[in-house]
Design a protein around this nucleic acid. Structure first.
Length: 441
RNA sequence: GGCCCUAUCGUCUAACGGCUAGGACGGAAGCUUUUCAAGCUUCAAACCAGGGUUCGAUUCCCUGUAGGGUCACCA
């Protein structure tokens, strides 16, 4: 059976690069009916923090990457100790007296007795990779009998847990010969290694917090859908071999293949992930959309429920991330004037091709009189409002009629069309705004 | 610098020796009911360089160049 694992170290907030690795390991395991394990690598006691571990668990749960067999290396010291002893007894490792160079250094550590030979392995993605391990020297495998270093702990755990395929970032490729040396010394089988291409910042260096990489939960908080994040991450360094770009988790599982993984690093594009998110927003039902959008509307929002109901489709059409809901509805946002009275200078009501304020004044007077005669039901959709005024607008010039109408309703250079605005505002408020604009002219 | 990995439009990528090098994001233009957004259509945009191998190379090999990773008692 195929067993993969995600082995993050809780020393900081993990970004998309880390979760992309987790996603690939998950997809590969699930596709093959195998197991996907989670192992928290907290052997660095000084830097490991509970809050970071919590964030990892929260992120995996949100993304829907289900794992089994969660474990922490900090709880497995007895196991490591036994293997360290084994190595020392076999004279494959030894206790070494050290000079203390840095704070925290120990006077004694355990070093691996490096046979100093060439080690090669067949990377699933890159093919044969060969290293001369001589230059590694007798590297440290433990700070003490109870404190293994990453290299030892990884090898022991992957063996103990039956990991068959190690999918990890390309930055680990140079650690692999060390791991193989330890495996050979312990008599462990060598798992398959697949070193994934790195995710890059826009300057093409490794993605990192310093280079602006956000923790995955920040994307959630900005209003990205988990489906979009998963979809986009899967497409960085992998493709289904077709031009299909919108893929559900089920489709990803079905199509995923290590053969299709790219060898070179990929830049994470904020633009494209927004586009992907938009595709998923388009697919949501209005009810689902509303439920999700409500999380981004402040509790004490002054927007009346009835209006909100009519604003929802407009929001759905315009946003790429749900965070934009908050912006759009803020007083200065594009839809802000839907629930606060607009104020503007009367010159704004003049359509660019008209020369005289008397033109919009007469149009507004006409519009007001037409609207007065309409029933409330007419405002139930933008279309029905449009029908009552379209003929007039065609006759007098669309811009000349529609621009002042739209501006008097929104008070903004940019806004939805006037019929949609009228629909949202309702009969009474629409007429009142148009009259107010008419009166200042 | 040593070692290792990589190299197609600005970005993500397709091509598994043989077509005008295809798609997507972004960009530009146009259309669509006035503005904005959305949508639709169209356009611009790439095989890192030089040697081989071959009837034929973006594709295979070599060298160079460039970029990246890694050189911890961090993972």
């Amino acid at each position: 059976m195929i067993v993969t694992r995600f082995a993050p170290s809780p020393t900081g907030l993990l970004h998309a690069g880390n979760y992309r690795t987790a996603l690939f390991a998950y997809l590969f395991a699930v596709k093959n009916g195998g197991k996907f394990l989670l192992r928290i690598e907290d052997t660095d006691k000084a830097r490991s923090k509970k809050e970071f571990e919590d964030n990892i668990l929260e992120s995996l749960a949100w993304l829907g990457l289900g794992y089994e067999g969660l474990c922490r290396q900090s709880e497995r010291t007895a196991i490591y100790t036994s293997y360290i002893k084994k190595l020392i007894d076999a004279d494959k490792a030894y206790i070494s007296k050290e000079e203390i160079k840095n704070e925290g250094d120990r006077a004694e550590v355990i070093r691996f007795r490096n046979p100093g030979k060439k080690v090669s392995f067949n990377d699933v993605i890159r093919g044969k990779v060969e290293f001369d391990t001589t230059e590694l020297g007798d590297f440290v495998i433990a700070r003490s009998m109870e404190e293994p270093v990453f290299h030892l702990a990884v090898v022991v755990d992957d063996f103990e847990m039956g990991v068959t395929h190690v999918l990890r970032g390309e930055d680990h490729i140079s650690n692999t010969p060390r791991h193989i040396l330890i495996q050979e010394a312990l008599g462990f089988p060598v798992p398959s290694y697949a070193h994934l291409p790195l995710l890059l910042s826009t300057d093409r260096s490794k993605l990192s917090k310093r280079k602006g990489a956000l923790p995955i939960t920040a994307y959630r908080d900005q209003g990205f859908l988990k489906e979009a994040i998963v979809n986009y991450m899967a497409l960085l360094g992998w493709n289904p071999g077709t031009t299909q770009e919108i893929l559900s988790m089920d489709e990803l599982v079905k199509l995923f293949d290590l053969e299709q993984i790219q060898k070179s690093g990929a830049v994470f594009s904020e633009e494209k992930i927004k586009w992907v998110n938009k595709q998923y927003i388009n697919k949501m039902s209005d009810a689902d959309f509303k439920a999700y959008a409500m999380k981004f509307i402040p509790e004490n929002s002054p927007i009346p429920a009835a209006k909100l109901e009519r604003i929802i489709p407009v929001l759905k059409d315009r946003i790429h991330t749900f965070g934009e809901v908050t912006e759009l509805l803020s007083p200065t946002g594009e839809l802000g004037s839907l629930w606060t009275s607009p104020s503007f200078e009367k010159e704004k009501l003049l359509w660019k091709q008209d020369s005289d304020l008397s033109v919009p004044k007469s149009h507004l007077a006409h519009i007001a009189s037409v609207l007065e005669g309409l029933s409330e039901e007419t405002f139930a959709s933008p279309e029905t409002v449009k029908q009552t005024l379209w003929g007039y607008a065609e006759e007098k010039g669309r811009g000349s009629v529609l621009w002042p109408m739209r501006f008097s309703l929104s008070g903004k250079e940019k806004s939805p069309d006037p019929f949609t605005l009228a629909h949202i505002l309702g009969k009474e408020e629409t007429i009142s705004r148009i009259k107010r604009a008419h009166d200042i002219l």
